[in-house]
Each structure stands twice: as C-alpha cells, then as structure tokens.
C-alpha cells in the first residue's frame, strides 16, 4: 500500500496505521493493531468483523469517542476532509476543542445498535432534533423545526408532525432507529458511521432501514461507514468491504470481489458459515475453535489458530504482508504472498 503522507482528493477520510489499546486491570489490551482504511466521497465502506475484532473501536476513534482508558498510538493518523476543504488530523485535535465538537455531529455523525440509549427520555423526539440542528447549523428555531419535521418525513416516519411531539418510549424499535437516523442526518454530515444499525431489528424493518440508507445516500451524497458482523447484510449497501479479525484487517476489496471471490480463508469461512436457502439442511462449514481472548492474542496472523489452511512455521511467526490482487483487492495471507513470489 502506498503510504502517502497527504490524503488523496477522492478520499473523505483516510486512516493510517491506527493502533488503539486499552489499559485494563488484566493488562494492556490491543484492540486495533495498525490498520488502514479510507472512505471515498459518497461511497459506503463496510467493515465486517465478529466480536472482539475491533471494528467499533476503530470507527468510534474517528470521532474520538473512546473511553478514558484507551490509548491511540502516536504513529496513528486519521485525516479528514472538512466541508471547508481543509484537511484535519483528527488524532491531533484536543479532546474538547471547538473544532472537534464542530466535526462531531456536524460533519461526522454516528448511529448505533441501541437507539433507545441515544435519546434522552425526558425530551420529545422533535425537541432533540431541533437541539442538534441548532448546534450545528446556522438557522433560526422555526427553520430548525421545519428541518426536523422534514427529516422525520424523509426517513419514512408517518405523521411526522405528530411524531415530532412524541417521546422516545412512545416509538417502536424500528421507529426509534429511523428517528436516530433523522437526528444524524439533520446536521447534514459528510460522513455517517453506522455501527450495527440493524442488528436488533426484525427482518422486515432491517430491510427497510437498509433501503432507506441507500436512498438517503444517493440523495444527500454523504459517505457511510457501515459496521456489521453479518456479511449477508452488508452486500446490499457497501461499495467496499474490509474484513477485520482481532484488531487487524485481513482482506479488503470491492463488495463484489469480497463476496464473489473471497481470497482470505477467514472471509471464505465467514461466507460459508451463513445458512443459505439453496443448501437447506446441509451441514454448515463452521470455523473451528473460538475467537482468542484479546489478552492472549496469537503471534503472527491472528487467524492461524482457527485457519484450515494454516502453515505451521509460517503463519504463526509474523503477520503476512498485503498482497495486491487487483487495483482494489488486497489480502493479508501467506497463501497469496507465496504465489506472488
């Protein structure tokens, strides 16, 4: 990978060599171990990983929303193109600086799995959207209310004027998730981070939310980072996919490349593990073993303890280098590194 210093023009966000660890009672846990990714303007990046992969931590760090015991390594870089055209190094911003607060919410917005906890239970939905709009956009209160109602309407909430005056507990899970998207979008962000936004929702509502996000992206032209543990969900929304495992990226590429020609044994296994309608009743190909604890992280390729194609003496020594399979498709695996040589 070219490790150019300056962010390229097509990229809204460029993360390089991101390393995040946590100080805990049991010792220092490295949650994210030197990963790179970038998000192009108006595109969706999907980050796929199971529990403990560090997928949430790596994206929450963009907004500097990590707990106090976290440490972002000095060599990490998170460059973000602001609306003004200015490039900011997010890791260098002071924790409570004006600029960070402006970017947070105003230019980068976050929606996550549990919509209930993101709302204050004592204010109406409308109130909370208006509040957010007033903080980040230069409009009057009346205009803000119009924007809020318009947003509720846009995310597919029926009777937006009536919902505007309702409290979060009066809405169902799907409605709350829509309302949270409305809050996020009302500030007109250029980057939306969606952290498992559909995991706790029913299938029908999940399908609607995914559709909604696709539509809104086309309309508003924002970029999205979509985090999930389920490759099945992401195929319909992402342009590019990164597969993470235990704090490292194992494969990245265009959605089609990852889903149709997965090259890393882990990606292949993840796809095989999803039950499929055309193979009803067949045995699933499971990944043997458990995800290692972050405290006893394997040396070398993080996946070697569970990998079917593990090569002893190679995979358990050091992390494989990236192998470029096409202009967009990169895999971190010795199986491919050897082919190249």
């Amino acid at each position: 990978m070219a490790n150019t210093k300056e962010i390229t023009k097509d990229n809204l966000l460029e993360v390089r060599n991101l390393k995040i660890s946590f100080k805990t009672d049991e010792g220092i846990i490295t949650a994210v171990d030197g990963i790179d990714f970038s998000v192009k303007h108006g595109q969706t990046l999907g980050i796929v990983g199971e529990s403990g992969s560090g997928k949430s931590v790596s994206t929450w760090s963009i907004m500097r929303l990590l707990p106090k015991n976290s440490i972002i390594d000095k060599g990490s870089s998170i460059q973000f193109h602001r609306k003004s055209g200015k490039v900011v190094e997010m890791t260098k911003l002071k924790a409570n600086s004006r600029e960070l607060r402006k970017i947070r919410g105003g230019e980068v917005a976050l929606i996550f799995q549990e919509p209930m906890s993101s709302f204050s239970p004592v204010y109406t939905i409308g109130n909370q959207i208006v509040e957010a709009v007033l903080q980040h956009r230069d409009v009057s209160k009346e205009e803000a209310e119009e924007i809020a109602v318009d947003m509720l309407d846009r995310v597919g909430i029926s009777n937006p004027r009536q919902r505007f005056r309702q409290y979060p507990f009066e809405l169902s899970g799907g409605m709350r998730q829509r309302a949270m998207i409305a809050v996020a979008l009302s500030m007109n962000p250029s980057l939306l981070i969606a952290d498992e936004p559909t995991t706790s929702l029913d299938v029908t509502i999940q399908a609607q939310i995914l559709e909604l996000m696709n539509e809104l992206q086309e309309e508003l032209g924002m970029s999205i980072i979509f985090i999930t543990h389920n490759l099945g969900v992401i195929a319909q929304v992402a342009d590019e996919i990164e597969v993470m495992y235990l704090g490292k990226i194992l494969e990245r590429g265009k959605t089609k490349e990852i889903i149709q020609q997965p090259q890393h044994p882990y990606t292949q296994a993840l796809l095989e593990a999803i039950p499929r309608l055309d193979r009803l009743g067949e045995r699933l190909t499971a990944i043997s073993g458990d995800i290692p604890s972050p405290l006893s992280r394997p040396v070398g390729c993080p996946f070697y303890t569970r990998c079917e194609k593990v090569m002893p003496g190679i995979c358990d020594i050091e992390m494989p280098k990236p192998t470029q399979l096409s202009e967009t498709h990169t895999v971190y695996c010795f199986l491919h590194e050897e082919k190249d040589v």
Binding site: S158, S172, G174, M175, V203, T204, Q206, A207, Q208, L210, E211, N230, L231, G232, V233, A235, Q236, T255, K256, I259, Q260, L271, I274, R276, L277
Partner: peptide
Amino acid sequence: LMSAIPEVNPDQEMNPVHLDGE
C-alpha cells in the same frame, strides 16, 4: 418476511415488500 431476507449476492437487487405502520 421472505422479501426481507438479506441478499448476500450484491448483483441481486432486493425488493422488500413495504408493510405500512407498526
């Protein structure tokens, strides 16, 4: 329900049936 099953294949477009309301 069936129309809402996530489609793994990116080439195949999903057309979930919209149910009104809650």
